[in-house]
Design a protein around this nucleic acid. Structure first.
Lengths: 146, 146
DNA sequence: TATAACGTTGACGTTAACGTAAGCCACGGC
DNA sequence: GCCGTGGCTTACGTTAACGTCAACGTTATA
């Protein structure tokens, strides 16, 4: 990104080049362009170059967070779309609230699943530790997790 | 699954046909065979038919739980593999404990991500509700979550 | 005994989420 | 004036996780 260009914008609002964001979040530029292709991002254009705003940056963050918890891009998009105001009448707000309910419920189910997986792992941990304890009578290794 | 066959086994241990499990967990038989193909399941065979034990059932449950939280089949397999005892010396136990640590850490990161997504949704909910409150001065809708 | 219902093994098709490569601007430094 | 560094588009390749036949054997039931 040309320096003169950053300077022009700096006073107003931070901007990022595609490789800025790619570097910061550890993804490739291809990935970011792909998200745009899928309609999850829509940065400004200055000439033919993409220019990302802090809002774009936040969106990318949301997408990647969604990915980490196993959401599809489509699901992440749905969540992102909830952030932009959209409708201004009561019906729209209620519709949005319903969607929020739905997503929160889904996320809670996921947390339950994770908790159960954790319990299983905790079981394994216990078994390991007792087995190790029996292997050497004096227990000098102090592993534990909560 | 032939009835005589179930009867023979019932006294010993429950068994399930592939469609039993498919029906119970809401997946297709193809899916279950695919998991076997990938080495995540290995049911017995009676003739050419697959016969699933309760242990197989639990494994399938684990796989599907993994899926719901966004794990790949490979990651689910790793977790499943931790359940079967395997090694019996101290080194092996410590190696297993390390893996457990790793998986637990990953799951905790995921829970953090989910929590942050939830916070975002909660924000949206609040905005919606105040907006609705301003739309009709008397607030007769009592939506709230936690 | 026929016929539906269930099971088996291939084999190819499909979708999401990118990777990879080619070919082409445009700017900035030497 | 040239070349390296990014960026852009277009297009084809790839992997995971199944779906979807086809062609066939087996079992239950009318």
């Amino acid at each position: 990104m040309a320096i003169w260009f950053k300077l022009v914008f700096m006073a107003v609002e931070a901007v990022y080049s595609i490789s800025d964001l790619a570097g910061e979040f550890g993804v490739t530029t291809r990935t970011i362009r792909f998200y745009e292709e899928k309609g999850l991002l829509s940065p400004e254009r200055r000439g033919m170059h993409r220019v990302y705003s802090p809002r774009d940056r936040v969106r990318l963050e949301l997408i990647l967070r969604g990915k980490r918890v196993g959401l599809t891009l489509e699901e992440s998009r749905e969540i992102i779309d909830m952030y932009k105001p959209g409708g201004n009448n009561a019906r729209q707000y209620h519709a949005l609230l319903d969607k929020v309910d739905e997503k929160q419920a889904a996320l809670e189910r996921q947390m339950d699943d994770i908790r159960e997986l954790m319990e299983g792992l905790q079981e394994i941990r216990k078994r390991c530790e007792t087995a190790l304890g029996e292997l050497n009578g004096t227990t000098f290794s102090s592993r534990s997790k909560t």
